[in-house]
Design a protein around this nucleic acid. Structure first.
Lengths: 238, 238
DNA sequence: CGATTCATTGATCGAGATCAAAATTGGTGG
DNA sequence: CCACCAATTTTGATCTCGATCAATGAATCG
């Protein structure tokens, strides 16, 4: 639960004991291996999850086998608050790396946030953030070129990891294959490879085994028309 | 407020008097002319809105002037539940046609849903629906061709209008210019025109002044790989 | 009715897909 | 530690969908 605390409490007035009601509630810890399916389409969702370690992704698969990743889920991200409605999952979630999750039964989660308004606001804020990230994903897919999409995604991931204390400056661990990036950005793996090479050639990023370093954040942001305000990294309690 | 009631109560156990708490709260009615700006980027959101008549759209504009529409807002849609967090708007909302809105101050809205758990669930359900529509929009942009995107959007709009009682069978009023459709689907207006012609030529749709008729829903759905489950038109209360 | 906005059609161009092969990486067991 | 196999990445060549530019044709509205 640490990254969630880091994320929510970094910008709000939530005190440590606001999380007491969460920790008192029966929180169960589960773990999934890299590549494992966490949620399948059609599942009845009974729990609310928080990623505490590792990466996962939410996606839909079309009948013709194409896949589109809807959201990359990093430590500190919660899902599915949608579980509060009793409706079957319309998308699947798979683990990218080994993933540690904290989960809580729907009813327990509801009790926890009912008991603590500030906590409720904290989760609501996380959900507003997530929805805004979805919207920017739409803009990225609809109105940016391949190179721009990639640059934009890298900057977003850098910021999101930074928010939960998982970036060493401009270098971030990216456990993503070209194919995962392609299915995120609506491109082919080949084109992702070429776009990466292009950013490298421009001296904007450096890539190593499974991490990338952003060499020129300003230029990269300019290229991607990246405006971080959609991440709502500052929150003011209402 | 009628379309919202139609939408929420059609599939839930909400009784008419569940809405009493809403109608008791100070609901203000406002109207915007076609083309008017309803929310600007950076605005502090103080109200929660429900569209009661007309169409609006949510969008972001890039620095280079390109526009991407994030969501088309039809009668019965609510926004911005995000207003419950005190953060500036990250996107703009404009009226397409003349638009009638019902709005409520944040605090009044919170009181209303706190007073009535079933009402809260109803709004939560609407918000789950909306988020799911955003996700499918992502899939549409990322993994479908122009023709498929158009077909998919038409089917979605038909269903959504149907849910609030605004479709006459397979014929729907579409107050959208080619440019609005283009900015929704991440295409150029020219290509939207050609794709429309193509669907017409295939005998799948018929178009007149400002409405379209879906002639072969099955074939259109097959072409678009349209699977309506993401619309969650059935809700079961938790 | 003109005038302005919007839709269609034609011609050309380019970003990104696809197909195929080569190069790299990583994991495994001897 | 090295050799081998599988998976991933890169690179090259070609093709296609959709963008762009430009002109014509309809609609809508004072």
């Amino acid at each position: 639960m640490q990254p969630l605390i880091a994320r929510i409490s970094a910008y709000s007035d939530l005190a440590a004991d606001d999380f007491a009601s969460l920790n008192n509630a029966p929180v169960e810890r589960v773990q999934h291996k890299a590549g494992a399916k966490i949620i399948a389409v059609g599942d009845q969702l009974t729990h609310v999850f928080v990623v505490s370690r590792g990466w996962a992704f939410r996606y839909r698969t079309l009948q013709d086998g194409q896949r589109q990743i809807v959201n990359l889920m990093l430590p500190g991200d919660c899902f599915d608050l949608q579980a509060l409605i009793d409706t079957p999952a319309d998308h699947a979630v798979d683990a990218i790396t080994s993933v540690h999750l904290s989960r809580m039964r729907r009813a327990d989660f509801l009790n926890a946030i009912r008991a603590n308004g500030r906590l409720a606001t904290g989760f609501w804020w996380a959900s507003v953030q997530e929805e805004s990230i979805l919207r920017e994903h739409i803009v990225r897919l609809g109105r940016r070129s391949g190179k721009e999409r990639l640059a934009h995604l890298l900057l977003e991931l850098q910021r999101r990891l930074h928010m939960v204390g998982l970036s060493n400056g401009d270098t971030i661990d990216l456990p993503l294959t070209r194919e995962l990036v392609a299915d995120t950005l609506g491109l082919s793996p080949v084109h992702v490879s070429r776009s990466t090479a292009e950013l490298r050639r421009l001296g904007l990023i450096r890539t190593s085994a499974s991490s990338i370093q952003i060499l020129q954040p300003k230029k990269l942001a300019e290229l991607a028309q990246f405006d971080a305000s959609y991440l709502h990294s500052r929150m003011r309690l209402a």
